[in-house]
Design a protein around this nucleic acid. Structure first.
Length: 568
RNA sequence: GACUCGGUAGCUCAGUUGGAUAGAGCAACGGCCUUCUAAGCCGUCGGUCGGGGGUUCGAAUCCCUUCCGAGUCGCCA
């Protein structure tokens, strides 16, 4: 409703300028920074400049246009201040419309910008035989949330876990296992043992560089279906997946496809052939490359021993997805450090003569640093995700024991709060920034955190239950005249716009920041206003308002991949 | 060395199609629980928007330059 009023006023002004001055001028309709400056503001500088007319003339002209427009019925005051024209909304009539809009929609905030379109999202994608790290947590929760948000916008989503289950790393692990692995230990504790072997391999390879060649040799044979290696590969993969499922169950994350890199083993020859046919492949230093010109280093498609590389498999996967799902967009939720890789893929797709490289989006995110540096699996320098989640859950349980020891289902509630805290801590900041790993921050429960949102929602639920609120009771918008109440209504009215913006920018942080603001508005309101009052009409109006707030909070949390609760 | 991304309060970050006095949270300090959950609320303190030029009515935002940090740069993924 608010956005609509802004847009319509903008249209009216643009139209009138065209009619009167027979020329167009850029019109800005925005929200002022200070609440004291009104609800909507129109800076006229741009118009003055474009038309070359004196400021007072334009100010009175624009003011007049707004006064005459049909939307003036929603305006309380129109106040020119310097080069700005500030508008104050009529709180009760605008508030009434916002409430009506909210209850007329089946799923408030849903958008149709993605109707009929399909988006593939490649995310999580842990590397088999390595423990699930914080880095993969980022991909998992960012990807999952973007999927939810796009789904709310009407897109059909294909969630793909592109498992890192192939490549030279398998040569290394198989070599390590066969030469110094302990079968029983691996059976007992598969992922941990395999990760240990991987680290040991790299330590040994420092002294004996020829091991790298051995590993490449083994991988080449694995690629050619050596039965012994394939059996080990399958075993490692299965055990690792079992381990990852624990994390996915905690996070409530699931996928439509678990096709990893190995799935494309028999599909790469076709891509290589096509590249050959199109004369893009050339031999260089024994390997096969695609020359990408001045701007980028060449793409290495095939190693000198004939085995394939990451980009080869990614190209196969790309074409497979295009042909299978007919996507309108394919998102890769992968770290910043792979930017070049995706730039190269797009370039190769262009050179092959396809026109969909602009549908490929690298949804990049920042590194999780330790002591200011990238964590390294090879050196065994990673933090295990499970430990972090468990820490958050434990802390959450401690809080419950302290604050609400009689709560039912304490463990389950603690789990939801703890996991949601970790999820929110990641999503509240724009994804591309690096951040230093800090357990204290991740399990912090006060201020701009997941538990703050949970707590706010629970408070509202508690009130609604205590007054036994029903949606359809009568309300009186006169109670929306109170500023903190109207601020919440304004926020509610832009929920859909926030969702759309988050979707367009693949940025859950926009939604996260919005939810924090909404929760803060409620808590301010709650501290000042008694909701469960004697007067029935007043009580029902207030309940209707906080009911909307609670539903937006819960829906937003759900989109972020958090788990809303009723009590805590 | 080249390219990419970043530098805003002590810390973590919002804010960039150029707009009014640059905003939150944490930390510190001071208040608020006989009344709907204090995981909360209110207040105080805290800023050369990395530095220097430029564009203009107006720059954290755009351009140039420079410093600092991280990442990437053919046989890993």
């Amino acid at each position: 409703m608010i956005e609509k009023i802004k847009q319509e006023i903008k249209n009216e002004i643009e139209k009138s300028i065209l009619m009167k001055y027979e020329s167009s001028a850029p019109v800005i309709v925005e929200e002022p920074k200070k609440a004291s400056q009104g609800d909507i503001s129109v800076p006229v500088f741009t118009i003055v400049k474009a038309l070359g007319k004196p400021m007072p003339e334009i100010v009175s002209f624009v003011k007049n246009v707004i006064e005459e427009s049909p939307w003036a019925t929603y305006l309380e005051e129109i106040t020119p201040m310097g080069g700005f024209i500030n508008l104050l909304l009529k709180k009760s009539s605008v508030g009434k419309r916002i409430v009506e809009d909210f209850f007329s929609e089946e799923h408030f905030g849903s958008s149709e910008i993605g109707k009929g379109k399909t988006v593939c999202i490649d995310y999580s994608s842990p590397n088999i035989a390595k423990s699930f790290s914080i880095g993969h947590l980022r991909s998992t929760i960012i990807g999952h949330s973007i999927g939810n948000i796009l789904e709310k916008c009407g897109y059909k989503i294909v969630r793909i876990n592109h498992l890192g289950d192939f490549g030279t790393q398998f040569g290394k692990i198989i070599y390590a296992y066969l030469n110094f692995g302990d079968k029983e230990a691996v059976k007992q504790n598969p992922v941990e043992e395999l990760a240990k072997l991987y680290v040991e391999f790299h330590e040994l390879a420092k002294e004996q560089p020829e091991l790298e060649d051995k590993a490449r040799e083994i991988f080449k044979e694995l690629e050619q279906n050596n039965p012994e290696y394939v059996a080990l590969w399958a075993w490692f993969r299965e055990e690792s997946l079992k381990d990852y499922m624990k994390v996915y169950n905690l996070l409530k994350v699931s996928f439509d496809s678990y096709h990893g890199e190995a799935f494309y083993n028999d599909k790469m020859a076709a891509v290589i052939d096509e590249l050959k046919q199109k004369n893009l492949l050339k031999k260089d230093q024994g390997a096969m490359i695609v020359d990408l010109g001045e701007a980028y280093p060449p793409a290495l498609i095939q190693k000198s021993d004939g085995s394939t590389l990451y980009i080869t498999r990614d190209l196969s996967a790309l074409f497979y997805r295009k042909n299978t799902y007919h996507f309108d967009k394919v998102l890769y939720v992968v770290g910043n450090e792979q930017k070049l890789h995706f730039d190269q893929i797009k370039k190769v797709v262009d050179l092959m003569g396809y026109d969909f490289s602009d549908q490929i989006v690298h949804v990049n995110f920042g590194l999780v640093l330790q002591d200011g540096k990238k964590m390294s699996t090879r050196k065994g320098k990673t933090v295990k995700l499970e430990d972090v989640l468990q820490e958050a859950i434990n802390l959450s349980l401690t809080y419950i024991e302290e604050k609400n020891p009689d709560l039912e289902n304490k463990e389950l509630t603690a789990e939801k709060i703890g996991v949601s805290a970790v999820v929110f801590n990641d999503l509240k900041n724009y994804r591309s920034g690096d951040f230093e790993f800090n357990l204290t921050d991740m399990v912090n429960f006060s201020g701009q955190t997941g538990p703050y949102l949970q707590y706010t929602s629970v408070r509202i639920t508690s009130i609604l239950e205590s007054v036994d609120y029903h949606e359809l009771t009568a309300f009186n918008p006169v109670f929306f005249e109170y500023d903190p109440a109207f601020e919440m209504l304004k926020q509610i009215s832009i929920y859909k716009d926030i969702i759309e913006k988050s979707a367009e920018e693949y940025a859950p942080s926009i939604l996260a920041k919005y939810l924090l603001n909404m929760a803060s508005l409620f808590n301010t309101y709650y501290a000042k206003e008694k909701i469960n009052v004697e007067d029935e009409l007043e009580r029902n109006t207030k309940c209707r308002l906080i009911y909307m707030v609670r539903n937006v909070l819960n829906d937003g949390m759900r989109l972020l991949g958090m788990q809303p609760i009723e009590k805590m």
